[in-house]
């Protein structure tokens, strides 16, 4: 049994930290953009325009039934076919946004559908337009109801960002690959990096919990978030 030497990882702490920061950056940007994309997609799927409903439906099914790895490569090669030469980070953010957008759309749609018809009728008879009903009545309530499911999805996104290492984005997993090939200490490197992801998941969940307390004034069902 060879001796384990974790110091090689801790010696390169600066690199690891940068990798973690990029992972966090990718996660936050994709989360914010993906949530917006997903919400619009969910609204489109419930709308009256037939072609829009079908388009949103196809987008969601296509993403949810194909691996993220393949999606990232498609975005990467697709964008370069169009003549655009974008950084690995930009490509990663795009692919992650498209990916989490589809999952968010399904979750938000379930949230929208859960709003009681009576409330919608009341809002309608008070004279509110469809857009106003979504903004004032549906959105906030739906978000509150699906918040645990939605934030779980965002934590999964953070873990999935590891796949961006395959198109040379220098996030945490890519840093791990570099360190282990440099130090010939793969076991220690991946154990440490694995632990860091566990830590990041935990921290992210806490951040979302606090965010939830801030957005939703009424403190309901706190244990669902933890």
């Amino acid at each position: 049994m060879t001796e384990l030497d974790f110091s090689v990882v801790f010696d390169r702490w600066g690199m690891v930290l940068n990798g973690m920061l990029l992972t966090i950056e990718l996660t936050l940007v994709a989360t914010a953009c993906g949530f917006v994309v997903g919400t619009f997609c969910a609204i489109g799927k419930r709308g009256r325009t037939g072609w829009l409903r079908r388009l949103c439906g196809m987008y969601v099914e296509a993403i949810r039934n194909t691996p993220l790895l393949v999606q990232i490569f498609l975005v990467y090669f697709g964008l370069s076919n169009l003549g655009l030469s974008l950084s690995a980070i930009t490509v990663s953010m795009t692919a992650l946004t498209i990916n989490v957008g589809a999952y968010s759309a399904e979750i938000m749609r379930a949230g929208f559908d859960s709003i009681e018809k009576g409330q919608l009728e009341a809002a309608e008879t008070l004279g509110l337009t469809r857009r106003q009903v979504y903004w004032h009545v549906i959105l906030k309530q739906a978000l509150e109801r699906v918040y645990p499911a939605l934030t779980s999805q965002f934590v999964l996104l953070m873990l999935s960002s590891s796949i961006c290492s395959q198109i040379s984005a220098e996030e945490l997993t890519a840093v791990a690959n570099f360190i282990q090939s440099d130090t010939y200490r793969p076991f220690e490197t991946y154990i440490v990096v694995g632990m860091l992801y566990v830590l990041l998941s935990f921290l992210l969940r806490i951040v979302f919990w606090i965010l939830g307390l801030a957005i939703f004034r009424r403190r309901r069902n706190l244990q669902a978030f933890i």
């Binding site: 049994m1 060879t2 873990l159 999935s160 960002s161 590891s162 796949i163 290492s165 997993t173 791990a176 690959n177 282990q180 010939y184 200490r185 793969p186 076991f187 490197t189 991946y190 154990i191 990096v193 694995g194 992801y197 566990v198 830590l199 998941s201 935990f202």
Partner: peptide
């Protein structure tokens, strides 16, 4: 469960494929 669910599958794969051989 927390450890496995908190680790990306890719990292698990690297750990198994690269990490285990280094232990023999």
């Amino acid at each position: 469960i927390q450890l496995i669910q908190g680790t990306p599958v890719l990292v698990l794969m690297f750990l198994m494929y690269f990490g285990l051989p280094s232990l023999g």
